[in-house]
């Protein structure tokens, strides 16, 4: 018999290293034609940091996005980044990029103050221009500034770093540990159909909503949301390196027997959205969240299985074998 059920799961996820102490740096330099190079040391593993760090830099410098290159090619040129893990790059490197852009703007203002013979406080860097507030004739394009600065024998480089604070240890007795850079949240609703004869589960629909602080790029978030779901479905239903755990008997060998979710296993209806509660320390309010996109589908599916067949499967993944055994035990 095929039985349908609905399940929900909620969760939270922190950004960055447990206890803090994971800094990132960024560097932005002004080129002779008024364009910019952004350098950092974060790795793009597909999440899209090469894209969003430019977005942040362009906003802070108030220049066209096309005018900024990004490079993270090696450790000779790239400033330090603790690494691409723990949903930390948007938060830590994002803040470092904002700091570098702000530093470069300050240096441009100081240079322009000398040129315009005014105080740096009166100089505005905006709209790809450098000008004295309220004095329209005292204005230079960024291209002119780039040329005059660089050919004039100056080199303006903005540097920025961000750390969520020094690393914190747990209190050995109470476990007190107050450092958490940001917490994102999420909720997933899964609809499944369970075949009680075969134990096979079809996920019919998955609704996922994540609270991300501020989405840097909504469509990159969409990719994380749907992509994480793919991994979460595998976590819930199929992925197991040691099927006879704790032994190593019949441990999987490759992608033939380690079953990851394919396009055909994805629910025909995938719904995702974000909500935003800006974080006071996040770059433009952003939190780190994308690991969490893999965390909720699994428990939502197992809860939906219970809703469908009335018995609990409490071991992940909920393979057909486990579902049939649970049904059998319930009827015994």
């Amino acid at each position: 018999m095929k039985k349908r059920g609905i399940g929900i799961a909620v969760g939270t996820h922190p950004a960055g290293l447990k206890g803090g102490g994971d800094p990132s740096q960024a560097q932005i330099r002004l080129k002779p034609d008024g364009t910019f190079d952004l350098l950092n040391g974060a790795v793009d593993i597909g999440q899209g940091c090469k894209t969003i760090l430019r977005q942040l830099a362009a906003d802070e410098l108030d220049v066209p996005l096309e005018n900024i290159t990004h490079q993270n090619i090696d450790t000779d040129t790239g400033p330090m980044c603790t690494g691409t893990f723990a949903s930390r790059v948007t938060f830590m490197d994002g803040n470092a990029v904002l700091a570098a852009a702000a530093d470069l703007k300050k240096k441009i203002r100081e240079w322009a103050a000398e040129y315009f013979e005014c105080s740096p406080a009166d100089v505005e860097v905006a709209n790809n221009k450098v000008f004295v507030k309220g004095v329209p004739e005292k204005s230079l394009s960024m291209a002119e500034v780039g040329a005059m600065v660089n050919w004039g024998g100056k080199f303006l480089v903005g540097t920025g770093a961000y750390t969520p604070g020094p690393g914190q240890q747990f209190d050995p007795d109470t476990g007190k540990m107050t450092a958490i850079a940001s917490l994102a949240f999420g909720c997933c609703v899964a609809e499944v159909e369970v075949d009680t004869e075969t134990g096979v589960v079809d996920v019919l629909k998955l609704v996922q909503v994540f609270e991300v602080g501020k989405a840097m790029n909504r469509l990159l978030c969409k990719g994380q949301n749907n992509g994480g779901a793919m991994m979460g479905i595998g976590f819930g239903l199929t992925e197991n390196v040691c099927p006879y755990y704790p032994t190593m008997d019949f441990a999987v060998q490759d992608l033939t027997d380690y079953v990851i979710t394919t396009a055909a296993d994805m629910p025909p209806v995938m719904v995702e959205d974000i909500v935003e509660v800006p974080h006071p320390n996040g770059p433009r309010g952003a939190k780190g969240y994308s690991e969490m996109t893999a965390s909720l589908a699994g428990p939502a599916i197992l809860n939906a299985i219970h809703n469908a067949i009335g018995v609990w499967v409490t071991d992940y993944p909920a393979t057909p074998e486990r579902i049939l055994k649970a049904l059998e035990a319930a009827h015994a």
Binding site: V10, I180, L183, C187, K205, V207, G213, V271, P280
Partner: peptide, 30 residues
Amino acid sequence: AWREGDLGATQFKVEAAGLIEAMKRAAELA
């Protein structure tokens, strides 16, 4: 669900809490 300023088990303070908002939107979409 955590509300703004609640404490977690290791005594951190919850900032920019947003679980309820995420749940409301998920229920609506479902």
